[in-house]
Amino acid sequence: KELNIAITPPEESHYGAGAKAFKAKIEELSKGDVTVNIKANGVLGGEREVLEGMQIGSIEMAVTSTGAVGGFVPDTYVLDLPFLFKSYDSARTILDGPIGQGLLDKFEPQGLVALGWAENGFRHITNSKHPIKGPDDIKGMKIRTMENDIHIAAFNAAGAAPTPMSWNEVITALQQGTIDGQENPMSIFIANKIWDVQKYVTLSGHVYSPALVLMSKVTWDGLSDDEKAWVREAAKAAIQANRDYVSKNEEIGIKTLREHGIDVTEDFDRDGFVQAVQPAYEAFSEKYGSEVLDQIRDAQK
């Protein structure tokens, strides 16, 4: 059997690390009966497109962020709420536990088998104007966000001017000043040499950005029980490799940014921001209910 794993970043990335670990593990377990091709750089399409591809069975597997997943499984929108998780430890523990499993189970009716939670890491804010220490500093700032209602609502609530923009225009838009800032996990800053176009980074960690190891249900249903077990085990290896890569990036990231002359703000008014983004929580609960949200909060008490 041959499995294609689609990822949008290059092979040398946190997703690539996961995909490579999956490939090594399953080829070992199956003694070469199952082979894996890693299709990196988005050659099989963007993330939303790859999700559709898995639904119809044209792509077997993917490691993907949750950016586009909410359109398919709205229950995952809860993870887009700002300041939801306190730390890497609590995010990973909760997603690996029953709450995370409950969300994974929602994928199957959509034709997707969710094998587990990988991650991009916490998202931080960069900008070219001035250090962001509290909500006042972000007022009116044009911050590029993903096309995601919750993120946009949160930045609006905090007083910024969220500007959804396709990623290939972002770096030049930052350089030309079309927008003032953007927000992403550390690995994206480093991969895109963000210091060429930005001066300030605030380690806001405002959103924990998870990722998913997914398989097409069409592919899954065609596997034997042995093969399914191998896939599950290889997915675990993929998630471990991905998290190790992200942890390492987070460690060296701050140092790398400073080496390139970036002004890094670690000490910021977290409580002030948490206060400021409350309207986004209210809007969310009204629209999607607060059941899972309360579970996640309770688990961190």
Partner: peptide, 16 residues
């Protein structure tokens, strides 16, 4: 491959 991939890829090629 399913032929569904025909409209799917044509659509996504334009959705940019």
């Amino acid at each position: 491959l399913p032929l569904l991939v025909v409209p799917q890829k044509m659509f996504n090629a334009l959705d940019s």
